[in-house]
């Protein structure tokens, strides 16, 4: 199926395939075509150009983009959209004067999300997360990275990653998954962080790899969470 976009006021981010990132002063340059057309065939971009050179194209759909700008969808490379419930109460606590650190010290923040997630079924987690994914697609996100990290047990981490993978199989958006087992130290390990790191590295990570559930691995390297040494242990 071919879709032709015509009369595009400005087509943004027109690049050759060789450019995979832009750095420093190059970032000020945004290559565009004015008064352009764009031809899509099924899942790919087939061709584009300026309206004055529009060839004779037989398209199934023609979308007139007069006055409108067309750009590639957003690539959101860092999210945690697979989660259960919400943390509106912490939001109100912060309005009333508590800091993020103080809420964390009271057992809130990540541990709060982990507790809810462990109690939520895989089906329910998928439904809640799919609602968020559909919302961001409508806001222009065409690719999204999704992290685990609210599981904190092997089973719950695998559940999160399975849901993330299934989202990618269910919706047209491109999904990449990241294993973030080392997001926070669960209360069972609060006096034994090394024990938790060993659990993440020797127990969780091999299972995630065995089920081929994650493209990437992540750690929250921060005072009060995980150290540089923990980071080396996980990434080695």
């Amino acid at each position: 199926m071919k879709t032709l976009l015509t009369n595009i006021k400005e087509l943004l981010q027109v690049r050759d395939i060789a450019t995979n990132k832009v750095s420093g002063a190059e970032m000020k340059e945004l290559p565009t075509l004015k008064n352009a057309w764009l031809l899509l065939e099924n899942e790919i971009i087939l061709d584009f150009g300026e309206m004055e050179n529009l060839p004779n194209i037989e398209a199934n759909n023609i979308i007139d983009c007069t006055g409108k700008i067309v750009l590639p969808t957003w690539c959101d490379s860092h999210t945690h959209i697979v989660y259960a419930g919400n943390r509106e109460q912490e939001f109100v606590d912060r309005i009333n004067g508590l800091s993020y650190q103080e809420i964390a010290d009271n057992g809130g923040v990540i541990l709060n999300s982990a507790k809810k997630l462990q109690q939520t079924s895989e089906e329910d987690l998928f439904t809640q997360s799919a609602t968020r994914l559909m919302e961001v697609m409508k806001l222009g996100t065409g690719a999204i990275e999704i992290k685990s990290g609210y599981g904190l047990t092997t089973e719950a981490e695998l559940k999160m990653l399975r849901v993330a993978k299934k989202l990618g199989e269910t919706f047209p958006v491109k999904v990449k998954t990241t294993f973030l087992g080392a997001h926070a130290v669960p209360s069972e390990f609060k006096d034994d962080k090394q024990g938790f790191m060993d659990y993440v590295c020797n127990e969780m990570l091999p299972k995630v790899a065995e089920e081929n559930l994650a493209d990437y691995v992540d750690i929250f390297c921060e005072k009060g969470y995980f150290t540089v040494e923990d980071t080396h242990q996980l990434l080695s």
């Binding site: 899942e43 750009l71 590639p72 491109k174």
Partner: peptide, 11 residues
Amino acid sequence: ITKGKSASVII
């Protein structure tokens, strides 16, 4: 916007 990349665009 590159020939052969994903047909994913915002209008």
